[in-house]
């Protein structure tokens, strides 16, 4: 999606429009009413920027914004600040994930300012998985904040222009604030209220856990609509391809918070090519999700299958002919029209 005030220099942000909070593309596209696609980039176990660029390039022209995870699954990788800094320089719209697990309020506020200075316009506040599920279970879990107090804190940094301590910030971070939601975790009847609370704490967009159970999600969304929450927050629903029935079994018993119903696993098990069937399930799910009132987009988490994101986006038809930003697009803008 190209706007009439596109920056001429790649890496520069868009101007902040009246009523908007950030100069970011994600907020722009969402507020323009498009059905948005975001995807999660795999962080490299390396210090090589070329690996980051190559991984981002897989999504060129297919996603509106890219999420950089922050030690997801409590595993160590390149930091979200680092990845975002590299990619914003090239014009990518980044969603910087910040987990409360590894850093306290001093570190997080510093990162928010630093990232904003590097062009990050969207921040996703997370509590984070426990250290026990990762590759450093002996690490000290920090959890100085939770996602809710983090949202509140970053919103105050932006809107009230002060740190949590009350000390003044001279130039506030212009960031669009996001949160995660898991409509599929107990207590199911509390989950819509939990989202309402996140919105009250400052969340403007939400990216959900993987949706494999459309019935639970439809019920959740019907409560969300009754409460009117879908008018206060942009809902991006998590989807992703499962590699096989076996890996689906493993995920549902080992990855916290992922709910996969039996019929999905049976469908995978019965397929000749389980990997392709995983993509088919993802495409079906994406199309069903798009039809639900109150949903504003999908968030594709194609763990170890990032090369199939373009196919999922194309086959599901969610872009409906919309042309997305890709590196180099800024140079097409005619300076004379400005």
């Amino acid at each position: 999606m190209k706007f009439d005030d596109e920056p001429l220099v790649p890496g520069e942000n868009l101007p902040v429009r009246p009523g908007h909070d950030s100069p970011g593309r994600l907020e722009r596209v969402l507020r323009a009413g498009a059905f948005v696609v975001t995807a999660e980039i795999a962080p490299p176990d390396s210090a090589d920027p070329e690996e980051v660029y190559a991984r981002a390039a897989l999504f060129d022209g297919y996603v509106d914004a890219i999420n950089a995870t922050d030690g997801s699954g409590a595993h160590c990788h390149m930091s979200s600040v680092g990845m975002c800094s590299l990619l914003t320089r090239r014009g990518y719209a980044m969603v910087m994930q910040v987990s409360a697990r590894d850093r306290n309020r001093i570190a997080i506020q510093g990162d928010v300012l630093g990232a904003s200075a590097m062009g990050v316009s969207s921040i996703l506040c997370l509590t984070g998985d426990s250290v026990g599920v990762g590759d450093h279970p002996e690490a000290k879990p920090v959890f100085d904040l939770d996602c809710m107090s983090m949202l509140n804190m970053v919103r105050d940094m932006r809107d009230k222009e002060h740190f949590l301590s009350g000390r003044k910030i001279t130039s506030p971070p212009r960031v669009f604030l996001g949160a995660a939601a898991n409509p599929f975790g107990p207590p199911l009847d509390y989950r819509p209220l939990r989202l309402a609370k996140k919105v009250a704490a400052g969340a403007q967009f939400v990216q959900t856990q993987y949706c494999f159970d459309i019935e639970i999600f439809r019920n959740y969304m019907s409560v969300i609509r009754d409460m009117g929450i879908h008018e206060k927050v942009f809902m991006l629903v998590g989807v992703g391809p499962l590699a096989s029935a076996k890996s689906a079994e493993w995920i549902r018993s080992n990855v916290p918070g992922v709910h996969i119903p039996d019929h999905i696993i049976r469908r995978l098990a019965g397929a000749d090519n389980q990997k392709d069937e995983g993509v088919n399930v993802c495409v079906d799910m994406t199309q069903q999700i798009k039809e639900i009132e109150g949903v504003h987009g999908v968030h594709i988490m194609a763990f170890k299958q990032e090369h199939r994101v373009a196919e999922i986006v194309t086959r599901s038809g969610v872009l409906a002919g919309r042309e997305l930003w890709r590196p180099g697009i800024a140079r097409d803008v005619d300076p004379a029209t400005h």
Binding site: A100, V133, D146, M148, S149, A180, N182, G185, P186, G257
Partner: peptide, 21 residues
């Protein structure tokens, strides 16, 4: 709560309502 969350449940609650950690 092992994550000392003060604002509600995390996304990792097990299907039987038990703690993730």
């Amino acid at each position: 709560c092992p994550k000392t969350m003060r604002n509600g449940p995390c996304g990792g609650v097990r299907a039987d309502g038990k703690c993730e950690v």
